Simulated scan of single mutants.
Amino acid sequence: MGNVKTKPQSKSDSVKQLLARAKGASIEEISEATQWQAHSVRSFLTGLRKKGFVLAREQRGDGGTVYRITSDPSAKEASR
């Protein structure tokens, strides 16, 4: 039983974890974590919005922009 295989985490799961952090994540941080280009990250964020996720866009003190998930539609489904 020590040979239990776990499903590898998908890139979309990784992005959702980054966006769920209190400090959020920048386009650059997501690009680095996924090896996606910036336009692909922006497209993914649009896809999340279309799926019902609410994303906050905030300015960092250094002038950068970060995104955070403020509402997750799967959390609402789980509470029903």
Rank of each mutant, 00 (worst) to 15 (best):
D62Y: 09
A25I: 05
F44I: 02
R21G: 03
K50Q: 14
A33T: 06
V66C: 11
I30T: 08
F44G: 00
Y67M: 04
T65N: 07
S43T: 11
A78V: 12
A33S: 11
K5N: 09
T34R: 05
S14G: 03
G24T: 05
A75I: 10
S26W: 04
D13H: 05
L45V: 08
E77S: 13
S31G: 11
G63M: 06
S40T: 12
K7D: 07
I27G: 01
S71Q: 12
E77D: 12
L19P: 00
A20K: 10
A22H: 03
K23P: 00
A25K: 02
T70Q: 14
T65R: 11
Q59G: 11
G2L: 10
L55S: 03
Q17V: 03
R60H: 13
G24R: 01
D72G: 05
I30H: 00
A20L: 11
Q17S: 11
G24S: 05
A25F: 04
I69Q: 01
V15N: 00
A78D: 10
P73H: 09
K51I: 00
D13P: 00
G52E: 08
V54T: 13
K23W: 00
K5Y: 07
N3P: 03
S71T: 06
K76G: 11
G64V: 03
N3W: 09
